[in-house]
């Protein structure tokens, strides 16, 4: 079986040399891949490339569609690509205000993707939104409230509901827990972990937090200066790091 996602030779360089150089990765259904590294390592660039929000200088991104055919996203027509991104893919952003419509109620945020694919029955859309809000532990009573009044943790959970309502198979996450209080982080990680396992999602999660990588991911890529310098089984890379930089990274945290 071909992998769900296969990126090869992804390159995007910015003036000054930063960016992402010849990164290749594969992901199967149900697999969680963590991309770690310090800021400037190229991990966020990699995620933007995978999300096709950034045009690559070189490389290809093959994705296996629901009908089994494999397509290079970089040559897919824009309409098809955008439809894919908002149905079969999700993107949880670090800054919830970038991932949500702040002027729209929580329920509307969740319902948007359904309406985007043609749902035109208000009652059904609302029911689906209510269901998903409950699954991410947002009280139905808050359904018509604006996310502006939500805490950081709630906003992230709302982003998750908004993305998962169309039952995507691949979800990209960019530092989804950073900036949150520790207890809020734990709750969110726990929720993500449960949903990923329950729904069999494939996930690429970018994080600088090795504990997050350990808790959520099966495999890990360590990036430095735009390149992948080490990869493998998450616990193996974190407990027996081989590359000098990975050893430094692991030894720099108290307990990962």
């Amino acid at each position: 079986m071909t992998p769900l996602l296969s990126a090869r030779g992804l390159t995007k360089l910015y003036p000054g040399g930063r960016g992402c150089r010849e990164v290749s990765l594969e992901l199967d259904a149900g697999e969680v891949l963590a991309v770690v590294g310090e800021s400037g390592s190229g991990k966020s660039t990699l995620l933007s490339l995978l999300a096709t929000e950034l045009a690559a200088d070189a490389g290809r991104i093959d994705y296996r569609l629901r009908d089994g055919t494999v397509r290079d996203l970089l040559v897919l027509g824009e309409a098809e690509r955008r439809l894919l991104l908002r149905t079969d893919w999700g993107f949880i952003r670090q800054d919830a205000t970038q991932g949500l419509r702040m002027a729209v109620s929580a329920g509307g945020n969740v319902g948007e993707r359904l309406m985007a694919v043609g749902a035109r029955h208000y009652g059904n859309i609302r029911e689906a939104a209510r269901d998903w809000l409950e699954r991410v532990e947002i009280a139905p009573a808050r359904m018509d409230d604006s996310p502006r009044g939500f805490s950081g943790g709630m906003r992230q959970r709302l982003q998750i509901a908004r993305n998962l309502v169309t039952q995507p198979r691949l979800v990209l996450m960019d530092e989804p827990t950073s900036g949150l209080d520790v207890s809020v982080q734990a709750r969110l990680l726990d929720l993500i972990r449960g949903l990923v396992a329950e729904l069999g999602l494939a996930v690429v999660i970018v994080t600088h937090d090795l504990a997050v990588a350990r808790l959520l991911s099966h495999r890990i890529l360590v990036m430095k200066d735009g390149r992948v310098i080490e990869s493998g089984l998450t616990d193996q890379v974190l407990d027996d790091p081989a590359a000098p930089y990975t050893q430094l990274l692991v030894s720099s945290v108290l307990a990962a």
Binding site: E78, R82, V104, G108, E112, R113, V117, Y122
Partner: peptide
């Protein structure tokens, strides 16, 4: 781009907000 691709789900979000 939304016009070009007939991506009009957002218009219904506006109506959804109204009803909600």
């Amino acid at each position: 781009r939304m016009h070009a691709l007939s991506e009009y789900g957002l218009m219904h979000v506006k109506l959804y907000e109204d009803i909600a």
